[in-house]
Design a protein around this nucleic acid. Structure first.
Lengths: 149, 149
DNA sequence: ATAAATGCAAAGGATTTGCCGTCAA
DNA sequence: TTGACGGCAAATCCTTTGCATTTAT
């Protein structure tokens, strides 16, 4: 994140809130700035701690509620759409997953080209890669049909 | 999952337990069979419900504890290594993530070839893809160093 | 003015832990 | 026989909700 990008994001925040029908409260500005300044993909708890340095009276509920609002209006994304409950897989062969963002269905996905792509990435950023896992997030056929109504 | 693969997995289960120093208790056999028979990437709660049909007296703790053991010894995988607490990202540009399986650090990863790969997958299994996200799981440099001790 | 947002506290769901009795090897 | 395991219940962690008060527009 370059400084100019950060400034850009912060400046467009108020406008983006207005477009989304959200008032740009002091708490929201600080929560968003903390997130935009963070490089470490913080948890809600970490966001709460950082915001609390500036607004000691803020409550966890406000942080959680606004994170949800921000995700809804596209200001924010969750790294994994599958937190909250673990999802298990006894299939240990290399394969990938299609995840429905709506009903959280998980479908196995096999693709030789994806597996081949893995070899291009050896030790990215010094990581010793153990599992190369493509997660495609989208709407499953059932939820697409449901949404058409 | 073909029937023969399932049989294979079930038959090797006892052996794999022994190798890992785990006794193959009745509960563990049923928990593992339920998982190996499941195509839907069940949550611990769903595993508990299914096992309970056969062992009504089993406790949730046993299910949770054994799921952990199975993951440790490589009989099982979690679809996402990042559940339990949400991890947030204010960077809405398409990008990918390196996740440390040890310390849960998340690092952004940009790669043009990966983005190009996306176009090969249109509507896999009928999914309307909204986000094409590669999650590479491995050991970050810090944890590699720590593990060397 | 007024609909929305905040703070607080309690509730809820998911997961972990400690302890004691039981069972697999 | 005995160390590992299972069951139970309490504890903990993460997140959501209800409600009274305050605030942004």
């Amino acid at each position: 994140m370059t400084a100019e990008h950060l400034t850009e994001r912060l400046e467009s925040f108020v406008e983006r809130c207005t477009d989304a029908g959200l008032s740009a409260t002091h708490q929201r500005r600080v929560i968003y700035r903390v997130l935009a300044e963070s490089e470490d993909h913080p948890s809600p708890e970490m966001v709460y701690e950082r915001v609390r340095r500036e607004i000691p009276s803020i409550s966890q509920a406000t942080v959680y509620n606004n994170i949800h609002k921000f995700v809804e209006v596209g200001l924010l994304e969750e790294v994994s759409k599958l937190h909250q409950t673990s999802r298990l897989d006894a299939n240990m062969e290399p394969h990938h997953h299609l995840v429905c963002v709506d009903c959280k269905k998980v479908v196995d996905y096999y693709d030789a080209a994806l597996d081949k792509a893995r070899s291009r990435h050896r030790e990215p950023h010094g990581f010793e890669i153990r599992r190369y896992h493509v997660e495609m997030h989208g709407l499953c056929p059932d939820c697409r049909t449901a949404e058409a109504n």
